[in-house]
Amino acid sequence: MINMRLKFIKGRETKYISHLDLLRTFQRALRRAHIPMAYSGGFNPHPEMSFASALGVGLTSMGEYLDIGVNEEISGEDVIMRLNAVLPVGLRVENAVVLKEKPRSGMALVSHARYNIYLRFEKDIDIEDCLRSFLAQDNILAVKQQPKKDFKTIEIDIKPMIREIKALSQGGGEVVLDCVLSSGSKANLKPELMLQALKKQIGDIFEDEKIERIDLYSDMEGELTPLLLIDNA
């Protein structure tokens, strides 16, 4: 089996498609594209494919990753061209690379995600100042629901999961926050939870207009590396 990693865009038209539905959508698109998929063994064989990370419903993304296994050599360019011809509007493969043998899975690699969060404030504020005081807290507490525990709530400190937040632009009450948050199996911070904590600190004075994931990274000895660049052949 040859492993490949695809980086794709999940746009506005597909932002409401859940993780499971997206998997099925890709399975069918891969069939239409005649990508020579490898199949798992066992009683119920399924095509070898997995996403690096689940994206929240309603979010768009410029950097999602899908790992696939194929059983014939096929170039990245070919995969891009063939898939994009048969993907529904709102999904687009940006890049595809062949991985080295026995690569680490995207899912295992991902440690951080970058988001751009588009906020609209009721009035002009000094966002830099807000962020400084927000990040200067000893603990940044947020209340999280636990779906697996009957939606019981728990208060957690999210500060260790915020790697970076900065304001990209400001004007007319609109602010774009560029942030890097923990993502993956070890620690995971949803941008919505971060916003909840921010509201607690500076008041309920903004609406989030749009949240877009920009890319997924792996922490390689302190250096954040985009998944696309790891374990390439």
Binding site: R12, E13, T14, Y16, I17, S18, D21, T25, R28, A29, V57, G58, V86, L87, P88, V89, G90
Partner: peptide
């Protein structure tokens, strides 16, 4: 409808309209 209403409903995928 698309950006403001759909996030509030169960299974917004019902109302998208851009299926393959």
């Amino acid at each position: 409808i698309y950006d403001k209403l759909l996030p509030k409903v169960e299974r917004p995928g019902r109302y998208i309209g851009t299926e393959w």
